[in-house]
Every structure is written in structure tokens, then in C-alpha cells.
Design a protein around this nucleic acid. Structure first.
Lengths: 226, 226
DNA sequence: CCTTGTATTATTGTATACAATTGATTCGGC
DNA sequence: GCCGAATCAATTGTATACAATAATACAAGG
């Protein structure tokens, strides 16, 4: 079932990898608030490891922009500002459009089938109001799109952003209105890819992300402009 | 003269930071070829440090995608494939367009002045055939554009890609034809920003990158398609 | 009372020691 | 001679010891 072929840098079987994943999750989920100082020893004790793997994880988290390390001083959690979220959504809207365009030429039969199943299941769970499943399916739809683009670079980039705004996204779908609308948009993107229409695919994926963005604004999850 | 205000993760005063910068440079410059195994002890001895800072640098290099670490086995230099370069140029063309668009509203007086100076100097050094200066000025022009976008996220992303294709880019400008043409395009982008014309700015920056891309193809620096 | 310098302490930076894993080599059996 | 298991060497993974740095507390002098 090879689940972890391309584990990138997470490597869940080493202590460092586990520390890294755990800290990232905790930061993104808000366990460690913005500005909090992370101490190597404290984190190490909490997770039952020594400072070495913790330090290596810190260095990676810094590169991901989740913490800021001030030499000889400490590691501080960096928050995501509303502006960051806005910027990421604009970037994503453009890049997801590109991903959809490329997917037209690169999607595999297997990916196409999973996407169809995804859209179908999403409709079902949305009607039933199963929030957790809706969230997971939405995640998966976008990941599929990234993978289908056939570009490691683009896929990696979009997954990064996707992960980065996870905190916000968890709140977004739990809306009675956005859920069904989002599903329809997914379906339209899928149709455009199936019909081998790159222009439509790009435009629809682009609009889909813009709509998600507007939805967040309307709900007051982030504030518009500075 | 504060040269290193926002040193990101490089931090040139710690051993780890120096090892990181050095290794990245060496990899991008081709000192360590694709597939080469990097041994912690060997690198440490070469740079006169112990394994600890080397290991931390390795973890960061992996996150940057420059090496691949196989647990309990080794660290291997990852090459940039031609497809990666092509993808990055397409992404850059879109994102640089966005940066130019945003720069229209966010560029500071200071940045504008440096950009004007940059364009002026570039013309001079191109006429004289000073390759090293041309390269540096080209670098700086793009960095300025990223900074002027007013978006940390976009700036970070574009600088990453910029750095990533450095190896290829060094060869590109050393062409009698592309140098002057590139300068003209820079000037046009600058004009559009100065005239507060976001559509032109975006289109010109977008085209600039596409042209750079085509230039590489024409020169046979990378091969087209797979 | 405030400022300044110093001693103390806590924390990070680096080096090294030890454990675990991998890959190769050797040796025995067939 | 060939295959496989045991052994050994080399390398990475982790823990810990030590060094350097920065924050804090506090006392002396103004």
C-alpha cells in the first residue's frame, strides 16, 4: 500500500522526522501561539527525545517559515498574518489554474477515476453534513489536482501553501452554503479536464480559489486589505 | 552598512549557517555533481567543523530540495532536471507578472530609485561587456522587483526559484544578443511600474521571463519538452 | 532613585561518545 | 564454483558533555 514513497523531509521513522511533523502540526493548529519561544530542552522532554533531533527539526521549521531562530537566543513561533493568507490565496488561484491546465495533458486514468469518486463522495457527505469527511475530500481533491499536473515543482509548491493555510481552511467548509457550491466547482473543473479543455480548466480552477477566498472574507475569517 | 538584516536561515556567523551557505553554493555551482554522496565527516573535515553543524545544514538542504537524505544511508546531491527548469520558468513567468502588478502599488521611492540606477548601470556594463557585473545587476533587478511587490510570501517564493536556477542563468546572460534585449525589457517593466500601469507591468514581466526561457531553449542550455 | 557594571544562570552552539543501521566481505556448506 | 549466513567496517542517528552567548539579578556608585 506504499503510503510514504516520497516522504520528502518528514521521514516518520526517525525521531527528527517525528519531532518535525509534530511541531509543524502543533504550530499550524495553534497549540503554540505566535511569538511563543520554543526551548529545545522543554520540547525534547515533552516528546521524550534529546536536544539533537529537536534542533534539527527547528532548523527545518525555520526554513519553512514557521519559526524564526535568533542566533544564541531562541526559536520563536511565527504567525500567519491575514496578509499572508490573502497573498497565498491569490498565488494559489493562479497556480491552481496552471495545475488544472497542465492536468489536462498529464492526468492518468487512475487519477481521473479517483477524482470522479472524490466528487461523488463529496456530494454524498455534504448532503449528510459530515464535516470531517467533507474536509478530507476537499483536501484530497486539491492534492489530486496538484499530482495530476505532472510537475513535481508545482505539486510541491501548492502542497506547501495548502498545508500552510490549513488553520483557516478548517473553518471555511463548515458553512452550509459554501460546501455544495465548492462541490459544484470541483465537478466543473473535473469536467473541463475530462473534456481536454485547458482554458476552461484553468479559468475554473482559478475562479474556484477566488471564490474560496471571497468566502473567507465574507465570513470575516480574515480581514480584507491592510 | 547593515548588509544582513534579514538573513533568513543562512546566518553567516554560526558554523551551521556557513556550512549551509557553502554547500548550497557548491551544489548550485556544480562542485558536487548530481548523485554524489555527501558524507558528514568528510564535509566536516573539509570545512573544519564537527558533524553537528553539518547535519543541521544537511536537513535544511534537503528541505530546499538540493539533496536527498535516505535514512541511515546517506545524503545525495539532487540534480535539477531540464523539466524542473522548464517548470520553474513557467511558474516564474506567472509569479513575476504578479510581482510586477503588485509593485505598481507597493514600490517605495527608494526601491524605484535603485531600480532606475540598476537599469542605467546595466546598460553601461553591457556595452562594456562586463559579464560579472551584468549578472549581478540582473540578479538585483529581479530581487528588487520581488521586494517591491510588498508581499513577503511572493518575495520568498520567487527568491527561492531565482536561486534554484542560478546554475543555468549564469550561462544565459553571456550572450551577445540576450544581454541588451534583457535590459530593454527591464526598462519597459520599470516604465510600466513608474506609470502606474499594472496590466502592462504584469504582461511585460511575464513576457520577460518567457523570453528568457525561450533564449535558454534556443541556446540549447536545456532541451524542450520531455 | 536611577544607572551601571558584574556575577550568575539559563539557553543555545558545537564537539564528541555511543547506538543502530546498512553494505560489504568472508567463511562454511553444498 | 555458487549461495547464504555470520561478521566486520563504515556511516548515520541519537544522546550527552562542554563552550559560548545572552538575559537576569543585584549591588555599588552617582
Amino acid at each position: 500500500m506504499e503510503e510514504d514513497v516520497k516522504e520528502g523531509a518528514s521521514d516518520k521513522y526517525s525521531l527528527r522526522g517525528r519531532v518535525f511533523s509534530r511541531l509543524r502540526e502543533d504550530i499550524l493548529n495553534g497549540k503554540y501561539e505566535e511569538g511563543i519561544e520554543l526551548r529545545e530542552i522543554a520540547i525534547g522532554e515533552e516528546l521524550g527525545v534529546s536536544r539533537t533531533p529537536v534542533r534539527e527539526a527547528f532548523r527545518q521549521l525555520e526554513l519553512e517559515g514557521l519559526i524564526r531562530i535568533i542566533p544564541n537566543k531562541g526559536a520563536y513561533v511565527v504567525g500567519i498574518s491575514d496578509k499572508d493568507v490573502r497573498d497565498i490565496y491569490i498565488l494559489r488561484s493562479r497556480l491552481e489554474g496552471l495545475a488544472a491546465r497542465w492536468a489536462v495533458d498529464h492526468i492518468t486514468q487512475e487519477q481521473m477515476e479517483e477524482m470522479e469518486e472524490n466528487v461523488y463522495l463529496a456530494k454524498f457527505h455534504t448532503e449528510k453534513g459530515h464535516l470531517e469527511q467533507m474536509f478530507e475530500l476537499d483536501n484530497r481533491f486539491h492534492e489530486l489536482l496538484y499530482e495530476a499536473s505532472g510537475s513535481k515543482i508545482l505539486e510541491h509548491q501548492l502542497k506547501d501553501y495548502h498545508q500552510y493555510v490549513l488553520r483557516i481552511r478548517k473553518k471555511t467548509l463548515s458553512s452550509a452554503k459554501r460546501g455544495p457550491q465548492s462541490n459544484l466547482e470541483h465537478e466543473a473543473i473535473l469536467e473541463a479536464i475530462k473534456n481536454r479543455n485547458p482554458d476552461d480548466a484553468e479559468r475554473l480552477a482559478n475562479e474556484h480559489m477566488i471564490n474560496a477566498y471571497k468566502n473567507m472574507l465574507d465570513k470575516g475569517l480574515i480581514k480584507p486589505e491592510e
